[in-house]
Write a protein that binds this DNA or RNA. Structure first.
Lengths: 247, 247
DNA sequence: GGACGGTATGCTGTAGGCAGTCGACGAAAA
DNA sequence: TTTTCGTCGACTGCCTACAGCATACCGTCC
């Protein structure tokens, strides 16, 4: 028996190699942004982040550039990186794009997904419902993302899945704070969606997904409209008060 | 009159600052890939590119990472960067995604575009037709891209436009070699599309755009099916023959 | 009192350098 | 002859250092 054959059967074919610093830094900064420790519009000084994370500036720079490509930070040449300021308009547009991509994914998934795929969907859905029932919002949001990602994967269009994944990551940033609101209704829709996919009914799957994501969008917009967004001072390079610590 | 007011009226509000080396390198490498000087699967050695472009490794590294995010190169941790190998299947999927994004853009554009937008569209279309008639394929392809980009911009959804632009750039890589085939028919469809947008007929605009991009896709697939794709040796790190130049 | 120019400071952009790691090649063993 | 292990070379990933620049501060002039 060849090793490759054996490896193909195990779940973890790749040993968890110590990721590059760059990847670790990317995740760390994402976490800092999502958790609110880095506020929208804030100037991200490379050297400070480097010191904070215990690495040099190089991996930080590379991480910031990748995060810029994914819409997390804005890069102003010669000035540096600033945490992206999410506007209501942009969130609306982003959620509209998500609706578009995921609706198409659902349609394709209904045509492509096999028994195995449906089984995985059901499993995820069950876990999601359990999470909601035990009021575990973080898990519910995570499983929600997994479920949507799986639908796009089952579409059979890798490019579409990749794009949808990119959009979903950004959506999640906006979505997490308001996720508590939707709760159980969302998972009823998931169940109906899986039914449609299993039945191979492309029209119905697409319709359900469209309405589902539109519900999320409406829910988000509703919640955001109520809270007044502070005008957010123009993203200006912060200047450290001159040597405040050295007496 | 304030300076800012005056600047807002001019076309070029920003003086052409010397772009960062990273951006220049990105464009240079893209050009090298599109033009075929860098072949699919080829190992891109940072130091070689740096020397070739006359810069240090750092901007090259950053450029490669951004290009990786856009699908031009594949980054294998610890091994380096390789020019992405476009497969027939991936091209099909990419073109399908483009159809999706641009169809929606056309629909929205029909609802949003004003007189000014339509005027710009007509202008571009005229230039495109002129290019085709004078057999200037390069210009025709470029103007084609501009036209599609303008339609997405007129959709009023910046996120959608940005995504469509990303996809279009990749499509252009696949598309350029086979663009000669479609010629004039493509521009008749453009004209019909603009008519629909001007009339504000969302359904018709969407329908025309869908058929238009599907035509392009069919044309591409047809042409590619005929040419046998060489198996492309697995992307392995090239080993430089030991000191070949030092005589 | 307000505008303007000089100066200082800290940040970004880029270059150079070092250690770790991966792949290829070659010798030795089965 | 085929397989396995050791060695070598080259490249990547990361750190450090330096130059240029943009901004903020502050004194001076109108």
């Amino acid at each position: 028996m060849l090793l490759s054959d054996q490896a193909g059967q195990t779940a973890a074919t790749k040993i968890p190699r110590p990721a590059t610093l760059r990847e670790s830094v990317i995740e760390a900064i994402q976490e800092l942004i999502v958790s609110g420790q880095l506020k929208p519009g804030q100037h991200l000084v490379e050297s400070e982040l480097a010191e904070l994370l215990g690495v040099s500036r190089q991996p930080v720079r590379e991480a910031l550039q990748q995060l810029s490509g994914e819409g997390w930070v804005d890069l102003h040449p010669g000035q540096g990186a600033f945490v992206h300021v999410p506007t209501l308009e942009e969130a609306d547009q982003l959620l509209a794009v998500r609706t578009l991509l995921e609706t198409e994914s659902a349609r394709l998934a209904a045509g492509h997904a096999g028994e195995d795929g449906v089984r995985q969907l059901r499993s995820l859905c069950a876990r999601g419902i359990a999470a909601v029932q035990s009021d575990d919002v973080d898990s519910a949001v995570a499983i929600n993302s997994e479920l949507h990602a799986l639908v796009t994967a089952l579409s059979g269009n890798a490019v579409l899945a990749e794009l949808a994944s990119q959009v979903a990551r950004r959506v999640r940033w906006y979505h997490t704070p308001v996720a508590r609101q939707r709760g159980m209704a969302s998972w009823d829709e998931h169940t109906a969606l899986i039914d449609a996919i299993e039945a191979g009914d492309e029209q119905r799957a697409a319709k359900i997904m469209r309405e589902h994501t539109e519900h999320t969008r409406a829910s988000y917009m509703e919640q955001r409209e109520s809270e007044p967004v502070e005008p957010a001072p123009k993203p200006v390079r912060r200047r450290r008060p001159r040597t405040p610590q050295a007496g």
